[in-house]
Design a protein around this nucleic acid. Sequence first.
DNA 1: AACATTTTGCAACATAGTTGCAATAGTGTA
DNA 2: TACACTATTGCAACTATGTTGCAAAATGTT
Lengths: 141, 141
Amino acid sequence: MEQKIIDLLKRSSLSITDSRKKILESFFQENSALAHADIEDYVGEDFDRVTIYRTLQTFVDKGIIHTIPTPDNAVLYALCKDSCSAGHHHDNHVHFICDNCNKTFCLEHVVVPTVHMPVGFAASQIDMVVSGICNYCNATT
Amino acid sequence: MEQKIIDLLKRSSLSITDSRKKILESFFQENSALAHADIEDYVGEDFDRVTIYRTLQTFVDKGIIHTIPTPDNAVLYALCKDSCSAGHHHDNHVHFICDNCNKTFCLEHVVVPTVHMPVGFAASQIDMVVSGICNYCNATT
DNA sequence: AACATTTTGCAACATAGTTGCAATAGTGTA
DNA sequence: TACACTATTGCAACTATGTTGCAAAATGTT
């Protein structure tokens, strides 16, 4: 894990710092998308709030994570797949929010469908967020 | 307009107050979705910030307006069509955000497509937000 | 190890949204 | 129209979230 994280940082030409390692670790540890507050909880008192904001912004810029829009307007972040590179995200998959456990997942294999736009409208990006019950909650209740 | 607004409030069994009239007016006046700040600008100094928050919440509860999730996580509100009733929204249409003029529109006639969920996931609500260039901006540039 | 460059922490600030409570305005009834 | 009852509003205070400038500390390079 430690090595995987260091490799990822090097590949993105970022210097290896404690906060970056810890924050990336939180994403690999949890398998769902994380809110800023989740990360703050995970890293504990080790790092300043501001550092987390800046680190997340850096990761987004470098294509390591992407943001997810949610209906309740909380900012969520999730790891990008390897195909993402700096400034060129490929996160055209559907995001799923579980109403039960409240976790958010990337449905990597569910591609956002195209829709037919009215005359005059030109689409450049499409976000799709589905909410409901996730597979884990469905299996255990 | 005044009468249309009063009728709408009565139909929702809400008392007719100055702030409710003024805030509804802002939605009928502008044809796009509005952020809290837009409404604050529109009503000026007439009403307290808190009143606007509470009024918007009331309108959402009564099915007069609905919220729109946006990729940059600003809360937007737009008028519901008549088919919406209290606690039972039918806003299953696509929302469009113009990257040029920054306005958000309800594409009432573009229905959110269904997508095939992975095994174990049950979808209950789908939000779709498209960004690009709107018909007005495409026509004038 | 020494230096230049990044990154971090702190303080201060800005914006967004919430809550309790007293004052005010709106509604139905006589 | 006046009254009383209820709903709504404004104020103050508070929490949460996010940003910026600058000095101190850590990182990468030689």
